[in-house]
Amino acid sequence: MTDARIRISRRALIGGLASSAGLLLSGCNEEPPTYGNLLRMGDNLTYSAQRLLLSRTSLVREYDRAEITSMPAIGTVDPTQGKAGDQYAAVMRGDFADWRLEVVGSVGQPKSFSLADLKRMKSRTQVTRHMCEEGWTAIAEWTGVPLGAVLEAVAIRPAARFVEFHSFDGLADSVDLVDAFHPQTILAYGMNGRDLPIPHGAPLRLRVERQIGYKSLKFLRRIVVADRFNDFGKTGSIQNGWAWHVGI
């Protein structure tokens, strides 16, 4: 290769790197609002850096079944006591036969899934480590349907950017599409080889394995595919002072 060609290819390489970095950065324009809060700016810096520097498809370690450990149930352990307690009590009868997961929003075919519908779809079982923001960890086996399969079943629109989750205990949260379509992001109905126990989020909970535990909402009732970021006001993580993206 001549010197001139090396120079050109070097320039092309640098230009290519710069433009792809720009593309990646512009892909991070869809950031949660900071409301001028320095801590939220730091959260967004960490979010952008993780999306820029880390692989979007790398898998978390999966353990052997023999490595399953004890796991506390924390936060809401009995949703019949909460705000939507009556509604939860109504759907929990008969092994959640009348429970439905609504999937709506920026989708071509909004659908309502029964537990049996979800169990008929392709399933994934993974033994992973739950990392709680408090500092403890637990290893458990989760069985469920990949969230990506559900989003494809409702024909998610190209304009969609976030997937929101709403639970029976009044919580709401969201993930970006990188985490939504990650192969280990599942809607879990089984835990350690049995139906998901109520304190752990029955009938259906989210597992977002590359984020801290509080992202994996329990007691799901509704999924909304959104084109724009929603902070969920007073019930959302941001206005309660918590980071939205918690990869660390």
Partner: peptide, 24 residues
Amino acid sequence: GPVTANRLVEPWNQNSWARSLHFL
């Protein structure tokens, strides 16, 4: 083998600001 139990009282927790400040 492994067990589960429900936590009945929420512990003291200031991790909302402490975690974000730590990583900043």
